[in-house]
Design a binder for these strands. Structure first.
Lengths: 143, 143
DNA sequence: GCCATCATGAAAGTGATATCCATTGACATT
DNA sequence: AATGTCAATGGATATCACTTTCATGATGGC
């Protein structure tokens, strides 16, 4: 999985005539071995301890690049920060966001997607993508 | 409906010991007689022509106040601006957002909500609120 | 190794939101 | 109607999370 994404990214880079650099390798490694919903700042801080010479702008640009390469997706959960989540080929999921601890869980539900399609149809609407987020308290924070 | 909201807002204000002012009255009127998904800037510009002496900060603070009073709700549709929509007692709806013209339609679907509750339950999650947005092309833009 | 390009990082720029502060206004009390 | 008190206003400034600039440093095809 990590290997597949590294390969996908390498291909994307060479297709676009972009260069491979130490920083990009480090950021990719760190991103792939992270929690699935990191903000730029979180990833930057995580890297900072081991690689104090990597700048914020590089992390920012590299994450954008991941998104363009299709191995990451930009997401907004309303806390004012853009988060990047891992993308797996053909997979889609929605989110449970804990309003207390910020923990984000994922889920998939075919039945909901089907109902969404029906709603769209009755409005003559053509769905490109959707977002469904349930905000509340996670199992841990309920206690 | 407008009357009910004005009353609700007046009650909220007196409960909190806040004052009624010309500006707040004007902004409330303008908000209530507007499209359902205005940004701060849109409302400010709309007011500007008739009431050039109302400041941006006042519009900003007053909309926040509406949200606290429960007559408006802050929404993000990913265009980088917070929009305020009207809230009706006990009503909830989701959105169809046109990615071409920006048009926003609303819909309600009991069956989807029910499935959401089921998802939450299987995760031990307690839902406070949710957001469901379908992005794509509206009927008009499809042509 | 040379060199045209691309990449980097510190710093400056943006745009939307949030706050500050001197002045004004609302309203309960004389 | 005048006063006192505290909230409200609005212009200006600050903040926050990006986003871009630019001088310097790497990369990789020759």
């Amino acid at each position: 999985m990590k290997r597949a994404k590294k390969k996908a990214f390498a291909e994307f880079m060479s297709q676009r005539g972009l260069k491979s650099t130490k920083q990009r390798d480090i950021i990719l490694d760190s991103f792939l071995s992270s929690d699935r919903h990191l903000s730029i700042e979180e990833l930057y801080l995580k890297l900072r301890s081991k690689h104090p010479n990597i700048g914020y702008a590089t992390v920012y640009r590299t994450l954008k690049l991941f998104a363009e390469a299709g191995i990451a997706r930009e997401m907004q959960f309303g806390d004012g920060q853009t988060r990047y989540e891992h993308v797996s080929e053909g997979e889609h999921h929605d989110h449970l966001v804990c309003t207390r601890c910020g923990h984000i869980e994922e889920f998939e539900n075919e039945a909901i997607e089907k109902l969404q399609d029906e709603v769209a149809e009755t409005h003559g609407f053509l769905i490109e993508r959707h977002r469904l987020e349930l905000y509340g308290l996670c199992a841990t924070c309920r206690k």
